[in-house]
Structures are given as structure tokens and as C-alpha cells.
Amino acid sequence: MASNLIDISEAAHRLGVTMITLRRWDASGKLKPVRTFGNHRRYRSEDIEAIVNSVEVVQSVKKNASIYCRVSTKKQQESGNLLRQRERLVQYCIDKQYTVVNVYEEVASGLNDHRRELMKMFRALSDTDLIVVENEDRLARFGYSYLKEFAKSFNVEIEAVEQGVKLQPNEEMVNDLVSLVTCFSARLYGARGGRKLKQTIVKTLETLEQERGESCENNHESDSSQPNE
């Protein structure tokens, strides 16, 4: 009899679900484990195989999803970008019939490796089946593959709504670049040196943006003055 029993990790692997899903099934009575003297769950192999072979039961399994939303600046948050991002991801989960168990939101650079909500989410991987993000860059500018592999070690998948999409160079990416340069400058020259370099970079970018705007305006006026042929 004992040789036909498997532990919760093996049972979850055979079923293609997480251990938290198995515990949920136990609570609902869908699956009845055998308890050891140490009060550990053990499952009968024949019970697991019966579920594997039951297409109807497997298809009825709903996944628990954690949503992660991020914007780089307060300006983006105040303009409603963070709220709209959350609404899109919640609707996506509804369409996919995922159960949203947690929503994590924060305003931080994608290069920041000390994001409070990101850390909080990864500490709670046992509570979810998958993480839903708008695209890879929302989770991290660099190191996305490492985060994905770490989550996978807990049988948690990361699902990007916009598969393979990278954010285009824009204000957000510029802010990330400024943050990166400032960080390394502070390490080399101290906090004061980092702030000074940041001010220089920001001023240079503002000047370039102004010159670009004036150039576009001049080109527009030049085109408008040309006679129609």
C-alpha cells in the first residue's frame, strides 16, 4: 500500500498544478490525501492517475494569478498610466478565467533592484500559480530571464500579455538611463557627485528636446510655405 503513495510535490508535478492547488482540492473534498504519522500528505497513485485521465476535471482547474504593474515616474502615475495598466491586466485575467489573488503596483525604475512590491510578490510565490505583467520590461529592464527561472523553481509561470514586446525609447527609458548613470556615478564620486552628474544629464536632455521641438516646428513652417503644385 505504502509503495502506491506519493508526496504532495510529486502529485503536483504529475497533475501539472501547484501544491497550493492540491491543498485547495483537499479542502473542497475533490482529492482525499492519506495522512502520515507526522501529519504529512500522501496521495494514492491511482487517484492522481484518475484525475490526469479526466479531461473534464483538468480543464476545470482555475489558476490563481498575481498581477504586477509598474510605471517609472510620478508623472505617469498622476496621468493615469498605472491605473489603466492595472485595469487592462485585471480584464485580461477575467478573460482568461484566472482568479486574481494579489495586485502589486509601484512607481519605480525598471532598473531598480530594490523595488518593495516586486520583492513582496516574489516572497509570496507559494500563493499563486502565475504572475501576469503587461510586458517583460514592466517586470525588469534587465534580468527578466533570471526572475522567470526563479519563479519557475516554485512552479510559477510569468505570463506577459504583450509577448516579446519591448518598450520603445521614450521618457521612461530616458529616466531609467539617468537613474543608472546616477547610481554608478554616486558609487564612484559619492552622493554629491552623482547628483551633480544627474543635473547635467537632465539639463542636456531638456536642451536636446527643446532643439528637436524647434527643428520640427521650423520644418513644418517650411513645408507650409511651399506653393502647391
Rank of each mutant, 00 (worst) to 15 (best):
Y144L: 06
V156N: 00
K120C: 14
K120L: 14
S153I: 01
L139D: 03
L139R: 00
L125Y: 03
K148A: 13
A140T: 07
G143A: 03
N155T: 04
A124S: 10
K148C: 04
Y146E: 08
D129L: 05
N135V: 03
I131M: 11
V133A: 08
R138V: 15
V156G: 06
E136L: 06
F122C: 13
E136C: 02
F154Y: 15
G143P: 00
A151Q: 01
V156L: 11
D137S: 04
M121W: 01
S145C: 11
N155C: 07
L130G: 09
L147P: 03
E149M: 12
S126Y: 10
N155Q: 08
F142W: 08
L139E: 01
K148H: 11
N155P: 01
V133G: 02
R123D: 15
A140K: 03
Y146I: 00
L147F: 14
L125V: 05
N135T: 09
T128R: 07
S145W: 09
N155G: 00
T128N: 10
S145F: 13
F150V: 11
G143L: 01
M121C: 12
R123C: 15
Y146A: 03
F122E: 14
K120S: 15
V132E: 06
E149L: 14
L147M: 15
A124L: 09
A140G: 08
